[in-house]
């Protein structure tokens, strides 16, 4: 790792005052000006620094800021948790387990027990993609300000199958899949104060901006993550498939949140993870479910609809089938949860 300074931010305000770049910005401007970036759990940032992809001049540690590690649930306000809540914290929360099953499942299957104890939810939403070309200092790809996408012409078995024109990196967070399925929002705090951004707008696709994955600005940090309340009609399920069941990155993950009136589906949200540069809602498939009793046959129709429009690359055509079959399964699981 390069040498850097280190500051423990005592408050959000000071963190914002001191920081001058997001991590993606720091990567792009690496050589031109000293970057002051924030870190929380550090598990992704240290990885990037160790690879020499980011060379910040100063790390501003958020992890000791009081109050950012709280998690609360309320029937009216829903679930709120601070960016310093760890993945393990989310996984072990009874409120989450009870009310947001898909989120609990996604937390329980993320990374390793050790990393879940360290990695924060703020960091999880801000982490950079795992594409092996992006992570290699030898490949100056588009995401690093270069002109070539090595994945499109190279080894892309784990890459995206939707919107793959600019950069087929997939979003690395499988928690984000579940959070978007629950229609989550993120609170960003910057010099001008706070703003609430729905997750559907928080993530930037590679078409929108190939060098950064979120709308967070140079001096903004996540200060809160909010999910609307659930009710007795809410059903949810999540499934992740990697090549291994132990520690592995997702090849495909799917989260489904349904509102059920008896056997009839009133509302549905279906989200794909590891399918595109952002967690991807499948609205056409959702529409198929709405207003109908959910049968295996309907679930399969919705699943088939959900993978429509996929544009797989040379080595990842199998993921289309995988998403289709997993989607059917997750819908049926959500219904069965009862």
């Amino acid at each position: 790792m390069n040498r850097f300074e280190y500051v423990q931010a005592p408050s959000v305000k000071e963190a914002i005052d001191m920081m001058n770049s997001t991590v993606p910005e720091a990567l792009i401007k690496k050589a031109t000006s000293p970057a002051y970036v924030v870190k929380a759990g550090g598990t992704d940032l240290l990885d990037l620094i160790k690879e020499g992809l980011v060379e910040p001049a100063r790390l501003i540690d958020l992890s000791k800021i009081p109050g950012l590690d709280k998690l609360t649930y309320d029937n009216k306000a829903g679930l709120q948790f601070g960016p310093l809540v760890t993945i393990a914290g989310l996984e072990n929360s009874e409120e989450v387990k009870k009310n947001y099953r898909a989120l609990h499942e996604s937390a329980a299957h993320a990374a390793t027990p050790q990393l879940r104890n360290m990695a924060t939810m703020g960091g999880n939403l801000m982490q950079r993609p795992r594409c092996w070309y992006f992570r290699s200092s030898e490949h100056k790809c588009r995401k690093k300000g270069g002109f070539t996408c090595y994945a499109q012409i190279g080894q892309n078995q784990y890459h995206g199958i939707f919107n793959t024109n600019v950069c087929p990196c997939v979003h690395p967070s499988s928690l984000a899949t579940a959070l978007l399925a629950f229609d989550g929002q993120v609170e960003l705090t910057g010099p001008q104060g706070r703003r609430i951004v729905p997750l559907s707008e928080f993530f930037l696709s590679s078409e929108e901006n190939v060098t950064q994955e979120t709308v967070a600005e140079s001096k903004e940090i996540i200060t809160n993550i909010i999910l609307p309340p659930v009710d007795a009609s809410t059903r949810s399920a999540f499934v992740k498939m990697g090549q291994r069941e132990s520690y592995d990155w997702s090849i495909a993950d799917v989260a489904v949140v349904l509102k059920m009136d008896g056997k009839r589906c009133r509302d549905a949200r279906i989200v794909f993870g590891a399918a595109s540069s952002v967690p991807l809602r499948r609205e056409d498939a959702e529409a198929l479910l709405k207003g109908k009793p959910v049968t295996e046959k309907l679930a399969m129709e919705a699943a088939t609809k959900a993978v429509e429009g996929a544009t797989p690359l040379k080595h990842n055509g199998y993921k289309v089938k995988l998403f289709e079959n997993l989607t059917k399964r997750v819908i049926m699981q959500a219904v069965a949860v009862g």
């Binding site: 092996w132 070309y133 290699s136 030898e138 090595y150 012409i153 190279g154 080894q155």
Partner: peptide
């Protein structure tokens, strides 16, 4: 896994 375009083990 080798990248065929750059010859790197990725």
């Amino acid at each position: 896994i080798m990248d065929l375009n750059t010859g790197h083990h990725i």
